[in-house]
Write a protein that binds this DNA or RNA. Structure first.
Lengths: 130, 130
DNA sequence: CTAACTGCAAAAGCTTTGCTTTTCA
DNA sequence: TGAAAAGCAAAGCTTTTGCAGTTAG
């Protein structure tokens, strides 16, 4: 556990924003101005392999990371691209039923809801959408 | 509707494999050897804006496209990266309950299951996993 | 001490874009 | 004939990698 690794983990733990790799890099640089982007990505991979953080694969181009590990799902704003956690009642039996139907060994499932956050929603309405 | 656009749409309609942009390009080139990658991407965007195809934003780096438009969900193999359709009973009330909880205007939701397909599952077992 | 890790910079993978020429309605 | 689209190539954005030097245990 190097200093860099610690700073990256702390950055992620103190952010509610599900930052992308580049955003984690910016956060980490506030603490360690010489940290390199490669180090950030390598550590984000190691941390998610070890289960300390979670690598999110949501829509959009960039990957995002999350220090909140237990299963939960996400809500993304199509306009400002913000990502929030969302509580959804567990989908009982989903994975097992898909396993039976498909022959796959199902490891996990991801649910992403997309839409417009309250702020962007208001802007859109003012601009004449819907 | 240009010839290129038609070929791209046909390629997608005749594939079960949820191809990436690059794969669509390869398919289209079998018909139109001089088609360019830029044309393929521009048309994939236009076609998905018009609702004729669907742009998938699943895990992994590359985007995938699907000519099957009605809502359905996906199952992705972590080992060979293949993507299949999967039937899941609709999640009644999900979007509305999230709207009430979050204040978002929810547009859609995506569910992705990930795991190991029957073929890769067998290889993994032979190799001593699990 | 040495295996793991860092910084730096270059490369790689996928997608988008600028520009000029061609095509379609 | 004018607007939309194609081809080509370059650029962009995010992530990965090679290498030489550094550090943690």
């Amino acid at each position: 556990m190097t200093r860099q690794r610690q700073v990256i983990l702390e950055a992620l733990r103190s952010s509610r924003a599900h930052p992308t790799g580049d955003e984690v890099y910016r956060l980490a640089r506030q603490e360690l101005p010489h940290i390199s982007l490669g180090t950030v990505y390598r550590n984000l991979d190691l941390l998610s392999e070890s289960g300390l953080i979670r690598k999110l694969e949501l829509g959009g181009t960039a990957r995002r990371f999350d220090a909140r590990v237990p299963e939960h799902h996400h809500l993304r704003c199509l306009s400002c691209d913000k990502v929030e956690d969302v509580e959804v009642e567990p989908m009982e039996g989903l994975e097992q039923s898909v396993e039976e139907q498909s022959g796959y060994e199902v490891v996990e499932h991801r649910l992403e809801l997309v839409g417009y956050c309250p702020g962007c929603r208001e802007k859109r309405e003012r601009a004449g959408f819907r």
